[in-house]
Simulated assay, not measured.
Amino acid sequence: MDEQIWTGVRERVLALGLHLEDPLSPEELADLEATIGVRLPEEYRGFLLHVGAGGAGPSYGVFPVRKGEDGTWEWDGDGGDMTLPDRLAEPFDAVGPDPEVLADLEAGHPEEEDFDDIEEYDAAYEAWEERLMSVLWTDERTVGAICLCHLGCAQRQWLVVSGPERGRMWDDARCDHVDLEPLNTGFAEWYLSWLRDARPAPR
């Protein structure tokens, strides 16, 4: 990828009065990639090197990636800990669970008015939620992807770094009982589309 796409982007963001982390040095990026065992998608690599390690961006911003005192790298944000650094080299599962399984689960959602006893409803709901979690919220669903952004109300967005979907952004609305869906855009377009419409920070 032509890294010139990021030329002047950091300056444009800072001119809006928005915060960006310092960019990673080439040595830091090399250490990050050696630690996670995979080369990051080129557009995201360019962002980390020329714009910042995270900060202002779509919705609540791009989760910063930081190296902890123990030498491990992690993404910091509301959902950043959902990223599994030691499994980023594994291919992301773009297929996901069977839609019919999800539809059956949603159809079986317990309704409080169907129960005479609140404790029976609570038990039924907990059992249903456990089944849903085992399908949608298993770690296997997001290996090979980095949770990069929080949209609010537990909705997030991910960047796939391994497998056929490498380099693409995916939307995560599992809080609404639906599976992850592709955004049909790469990291650079995702970020620069936000920047085109970004407004200065309130003074």
Rank of each mutant, 00 (worst) to 15 (best):
M1S: 12
M1E: 07
I5D: 00
I5T: 10
L14D: 02
G17M: 02
L18T: 04
E21L: 04
P23Y: 07
P26Q: 00
E27T: 12
E28Q: 15
L29K: 02
D31W: 01
D31S: 06
L32Q: 03
E33A: 08
A34D: 14
I36S: 05
V38Y: 06
L40F: 04
E43C: 02
E43R: 04
Y44C: 07
R45S: 13
F47T: 04
F47R: 01
H50Q: 15
V51G: 06
A53L: 01
A56T: 01
A56I: 01
G57V: 00
P58N: 04
P58D: 03
Y60G: 00
G61H: 02
P64T: 05
V65G: 06
E69Y: 01
E69K: 13
E69H: 07
D70I: 05
T72K: 13
D76L: 12
D78R: 09
D78H: 10
D78T: 10
D78Q: 11
G79I: 03
G80Y: 06
D81I: 08
P85G: 08
D86Y: 13
P91G: 07
F92Q: 15
D93A: 11
V95G: 03
V95S: 09
E100T: 05
A103Y: 01
D104A: 14
E106L: 10
E106A: 13
A107S: 08
G108Q: 07
G108T: 01
H109R: 11
P110C: 10
E112L: 03
E112V: 05
E113Y: 05
E113H: 09
D114E: 12
D117V: 14
D117G: 09
D117Q: 07
E120I: 12
Y121H: 07
A123K: 15
A124D: 08
A124Y: 09
A124C: 08
A124M: 08
Y125K: 14
W128S: 08
E130T: 13
L132P: 00
M133D: 15
V135H: 01
L136Y: 10
L136M: 02
L136K: 14
D139G: 07
G144R: 14
A145Y: 11
I146H: 05
C147G: 03
L148W: 00
L148I: 13
C149R: 05
H150V: 00
H150A: 11
L151N: 07
G152E: 07
C153A: 10
A154K: 11
Q155V: 10
R156W: 02
L159G: 11
L159V: 06
V160N: 12
V160D: 06
V160L: 10
P164V: 08
E165W: 02
E165S: 15
R166V: 02
R168W: 13
R168F: 13
R174P: 08
C175P: 00
C175V: 14
D176K: 13
H177T: 14
H177L: 13
V178F: 11
V178T: 15
P182C: 05
L183I: 05
N184H: 13
N184K: 05
T185Y: 01
G186R: 04
A188D: 06
E189G: 09
E189Q: 15
W190F: 14
L192C: 05
R196I: 00
A198F: 11
A198L: 07
P200N: 06
A201K: 12
R203I: 06
